[in-house]
Amino acid sequence: MVPFAYAAAASAPAAIRHVAQRRDAEFIAGGTDMLQLLQDGVRSPSELIDINRLPMTAIEVGPKGARLGALARMADVADDPRIRAEFPMVAEALLASASPQVRNMASIGGNLLQRTRCLYFRDVATPCNRRAPGTGCPALDGENRLNAILGGSVHCIATYPGDLAVALVALDADVHIDGTRGERTIPVERLHRVPGDAPHLETVLEPGDLITAVTIPAGAAARRSHYLKVRDRASFEFALASAAVGLEVDGGTIRAARVAVGGVATVPWRLRHVEEALVGRPLSADVIHEAARTSSDGAEPRGRNAFKVALLPRTVERALRTVGGLA
């Protein structure tokens, strides 16, 4: 671990200015991922600016939707009865993440920015284009069981590891960012970048950009929603495949559908073509099967992760059947 300076931020503007100006300064919130990255030598910031005291912990839920402060803890959001009622997939995605101890510490904003679990990214003795640009990607032909079948490139197939962002992408949630040029709002779906030929650029955030909140629009498909996470053990493991799904059904006909998947792609992955195959059709096992069947279209498996091509459509199908009352 490289020595670093530590300071608690007094205000958001001061914190943003500080991090924007100092090379290799970073924010730290819950620290549940940052500490691992520091200990493994994956990150070596010169300074850590602790934002935990900033007033960004509120969880607000109104008729139009929810606003989650970036420093709301995962556990508090997961336990909020309004979130559980209006956005079940969000609460379920959070509860399927990590362990109770980690969820008590980890923040909503930090969770969105969790780094990949790719085995090579985490072992500094091996090459990794994402960690050390230009060194190569051993995962392409190596221990890539955890890696992505969607959204990868010849430079990187690291899986986006989180659960919450998958649910947020499915629900058209926005992320609110404060930066040196003021505040802006972008869809969560546009926060992360596919690796392409620059896998080290993981998000669209600029130096000093601070996530302040997430907003989630309310709706029938959010209310009737579900997050299914498939993994080897029953808890405390990243997804091999996951599906965040929501349905709005009127008179037996699907009026709206939300489908996003995790554990299989380099970024939280929305499956719009699956949604389109559902909308306007009757809610039935056959319709769900036909729509989910195409979930892996375009997948590029690379050895040990090939099973995800078969697993993903089944995960989507099971999640849709569950939320459709057909499981």
Binding site: R117, L119, D123, T126, P138, G142
Partner: peptide, 14 residues
Amino acid sequence: DPRFGRVMNANFAE
């Protein structure tokens, strides 16, 4: 990973 002769999941998460 035989290319490196290393255990790649040498931690309690993986």
